[in-house]
Amino acid sequence: MSAAVAELRHVVREFGGATTVRALAGVDLALAPGDFCAIVGASGAGKSTLLNVMGLLDRLTAGEYFVDGVATSGLNDRQRSAVRGSTIGFVFQSFHLLATRSVLDNVLMAFTYGGVPRSERRPRAVEALDRVGLGARLAFSPATLSGGERQRVAIARAVCAGPRLLLADEPTGNLDRSNSESVMELFAELNADGLTIAIITHDDEVAGRAHRRLQLRDGTLHSSAAEAAAPAFQPSSARGPAPSDGTHASLADVNQVTGIRGGTRR
């Protein structure tokens, strides 16, 4: 087994102020190449903080985060930006498309800060849009697209530069049921092609499409029993901090949709 694409070791993230809030209280998580992991949890449980840390958008208070086996805590802003641009793709709940630019230009933005040669940019962007089923809408304004289509544009933008890790923060939060399903189908396809995906969601059905399902509660990760049965990438210490909560683990067990996992895992 190759090294983890992303690995958190005892990660702590605190926010200062009058009283210190501990958003992440010692999280251990490893994502192997090809992993498809859903992180669920109540509002304020630290889901977004966890994803921001994994996306190098936020810094750690303690612990270490490795991307492709390389520790990131010592990197400066420029180096972190370079890792973000080359290795990590982001999908946001609110899409973050620029309304003044065409669908194609929005996707091309992914190449602005990377080192992809100019001649390769447009073919790769068009290919990514073809893949998400929007190859015929290149010149459209995002404003004319439905929510599901906008999110697919955002996904094309996230993957066209060839990231190793795709991070999605409530990607279906603004979508209706059928659009959610088509977006999740897209994630499953990308994962089937080998892309490592971590997705934050509060939707059990969406979480069910992932291979692994982790519950974030009070700043710590809790995995399901099914997770424990496939322990390859889950450090045992992740379950350590909150041993008392057996209830949730069994709930997560019930919700686990193992059929999809078996069908798409390589």
């Binding site: 991307v67 086996g69 990131t72 080359s86 990377g114 080192g115 060839g162 190793r164």
Partner: peptide, 28 residues
């Protein structure tokens, strides 16, 4: 530092063609 070089080497290895590590001035 040595670690920085490791990062850029690994990222380049996975996702970038050997050339084109510019600052993207033209893009900006």
């Amino acid at each position: 530092s040595r670690r920085d070089r490791t990062v850029s080497r690994s990222t380049r290895h996975h996702t970038r063609p050997p050339h084109g590590q510019g600052l993207g001035a033209r893009s900006v």
